[in-house]
């Protein structure tokens, strides 16, 4: 009975299946296979056979070009030297901070009786703004003669944040502020919808039980919001691991100069395309995938006891 008309179901599904096959499944499988190909040339689509070396090279365990002198062995070691530490800093600084700030803003927005809708709209604006455009605005703010330095009273090239001559740590601060700012709206939105679903009686009960504001937040609001917090946490960790457009938006390509290097892992992956080193990029992408998968798995495992649906 069911088998008879099966083709109809497939027909209805065809548009999305074709789209996903072309733009999702094929690239996915290609990435995995290219990661194991030696000297893959994506223009000629040729390779010199199967290898595990790509992973070793990306992680700096093997030289790109064993014959050349060490300093000329290319940017691949930048992954270890810059991309991995930078990505780690971005991830472990921006994700917790942005979640805490978004939670505070959402709880605040939820408790103001007037102009709530207007403020919600204002806080949502960064979400609908192009990240490159926002990056340019931040570049102006953090210019060595920009507003930030003006407010700090430290105008001048020697106090640069993101321009040539700025140290990596200063550029990193600017980058993190930018990333946090632009990631807030989505999180606030999720938290606000979660807060709207919490029965008001819990707060009345907490009030009668003479729990203070902070205690109510920590013992009532946060636990009842834990599904949303987990969701936001997992999606933001994934997003932060893949941070790329913010670097381009704020620092411009390549985000690297004599004094600083703002390479991230995904930045490196994109960079390999122009160098016709897609096999290294694919290997890095697979590694990143494994890390994200493991990290998400750990979060789910930890959250089992802490999240209350």
């Amino acid at each position: 009975m069911i088998k008879k008309n099966n083709w109809k179901g497939w027909l209805y599904l065809a548009p999305i299946i074709i789209l996903m096959a072309v733009f999702t499944f094929y690239p996915l499988i290609s990435t995995f296979s290219i990661a194991f190909m030696k000297d893959y040339d994506y223009i000629k689509q040729t390779s010199a056979g199967f290898t595990f070396d790509n992973f070793a090279i990306v992680l700096g365990l093997a030289p790109t070009n064993p014959e050349a002198p060490v300093e000329l062995q290319g940017y691949v070691t930048d992954v270890v030297r810059y991309a991995i530490p930078n990505t780690a800093i971005i991830t472990f600084v921006t994700v917790p901070l942005s979640i805490i700030i978004a939670l505070a803003i959402a709880v605040g927005l939820n408790s103001i009786p007037k102009f709530q809708k207007i403020f919600q709209t204002i806080f949502f604006i960064p979400y609908v703004t192009n990240s490159i455009a926002v990056g340019m605005v931040f570049a102006v703010l953090f210019d060595y003669n920009g507003i930030v330095n003006f407010l700090l009273g430290t105008m001048g090239r020697e106090y640069a944040w993101i321009d040539l001559g700025a140290p990596t740590w200063k550029a990193m601060i600017a980058l993190c502020i930018y990333i946090i700012w632009s990631s807030l709206p989505f999180k606030i939105l999720i938290f606000l919808s979660g807060l709207a679903g919490i029965d008001k009686q819990y707060y009345d009960a907490a009030k009668i039980d003479s729990a203070g504001k902070f205690k109510t937040l920590m013992h009532v609001t946060v636990p009842l919001l834990s599904p949303q917090i987990l969701y936001v946490m997992i999606t933001s960790f994934i997003g932060a691991f893949k941070e790329y457009d913010s670097v381009v938006g704020l620092l411009g390509k390549p985000g690297t100069d004599a004094t600083k290097n703002m390479y991230t892992v995904v930045y490196y992956i994109y960079d390999t395309i122009s160098q016709n080193n897609v096999h290294y990029g694919s290997a890095a992408a697979v590694l990143l995938f494994v890390v994200i998968l493991a990290f998400t798995g750990i979060q789910f495992w930890v959250s089992k006891k802490r999240v209350h649906y």
């Binding site: 009686q201 819990y202 009345d204 009960a205």
Partner: peptide, 9 residues
């Protein structure tokens, strides 16, 4: 409370 408002967590 009518629906008890016990903290589910």
């Amino acid at each position: 409370f009518q629906n008890y408002a016990l903290y589910p967590h």
